[in-house]
Amino acid sequence: MTLLIVGLVLFLGVHSVRIVAEGWRQRTIARLGEGAWKGLYSVASLVGFVALVWGYGHARLDPTVLWATPVWTRHLASLLVLVAFVLLAAAYVPGNHLKARLHHPMVLAVKVWALAHLLANNTLADLLLFGSFLLWAVLDFRAARGRDRANGTVYPAGQGVKTAVTVVVGVVAWAVFAFWAHKALFGISPFGR
């Protein structure tokens, strides 16, 4: 469990710099240069990610169950993760209505993904992992919207065709993940097969 916690602190800590220390971040980028900042940021993120994945894997070997989860929570989680995949696609498909309206769909995708996994899972490791990501996403979304207001950021209007492409990409990615990749990567099928 210690490795999971260290990984979460490192990974989410690096990703929280803009939330808690935007001025320090800007000064550090000015001092080091953008390339060096991105390099350090990427290395710290990767080390944190590996630690949290490894730590979570170890915690799953001897789980501490906190509550019983009904079967229906898996189905609700699958539906929520479908929404998360569409939001994730909205972050990358330019000119869609979702990004124009929501402004930060990737962070919202993390929120929905984390909530879905909290509903469907019931161990201490799940609570730490998904609860931490949910809390981080709530704080990051709030900070990002605040930066947008402070900077007067205006997002371009979306187009119907690009929004349709966004939804199709999200649904296809979700289907691949739900029906194949989740089991292949994590050993668990979202639908219990």
Rank of each mutant, 00 (worst) to 15 (best):
M1T: 13
M1A: 12
M1G: 14
T2W: 15
L3S: 05
L4G: 09
L4K: 06
I5T: 06
I5Q: 07
L8D: 06
V9Q: 08
L12Q: 09
V14W: 11
V17I: 05
V20C: 11
A21G: 02
A21S: 09
E22R: 15
E22K: 13
G23H: 14
W24G: 13
W24M: 12
Q26M: 14
Q26K: 13
R27N: 11
T28R: 14
L32Y: 00
L32R: 00
E34S: 13
E34P: 10
G35I: 02
G39Y: 11
G39A: 07
Y41M: 08
S42Y: 12
V43C: 10
S45E: 08
S45W: 07
S45N: 14
G48F: 02
A51Q: 09
A51L: 12
G55P: 07
H58M: 15
R60Q: 14
L61C: 12
L61K: 13
D62R: 11
P63R: 09
T64V: 13
T64I: 15
A68D: 14
A68I: 14
T69W: 05
T69H: 01
V71P: 14
T73Q: 01
R74S: 15
R74A: 14
H75G: 13
H75D: 15
S78Q: 04
L79N: 12
L79G: 15
L79I: 03
L80P: 01
L80M: 10
L80R: 07
V81T: 11
V86S: 03
V86K: 03
L87W: 01
L87Y: 02
A89M: 04
Y92R: 09
Y92H: 12
P94F: 02
N96E: 03
N96F: 02
H97T: 13
H97V: 08
L98N: 00
A100H: 01
A100K: 05
P105R: 00
L108S: 07
A109M: 04
A109H: 01
V110D: 03
W113F: 06
W113N: 00
L115A: 06
A116V: 03
L118D: 08
A120V: 04
L124V: 10
A125Q: 01
L127Y: 08
L127M: 09
L128V: 01
G131Y: 02
F133W: 08
L134C: 09
L134H: 05
L134G: 05
L134N: 01
L135V: 15
A137I: 04
V138H: 08
R142G: 14
G146F: 13
G146T: 12
R147E: 13
R147V: 13
D148M: 05
R149T: 11
R149W: 04
A150Y: 09
N151F: 10
G152R: 15
T153L: 10
Y155D: 12
A157E: 12
G158K: 03
G158F: 00
Q159I: 11
G160T: 12
A164E: 04
A164I: 01
V165N: 11
V169K: 07
V169F: 02
V169A: 04
G170R: 00
A173T: 06
W174F: 05
A175W: 01
A175C: 10
V176F: 10
F179D: 06
F179S: 03
W180M: 13
A181V: 07
K183Y: 12
A184F: 05
F186H: 15
G187C: 02
P190A: 08
F191T: 09
F191V: 13
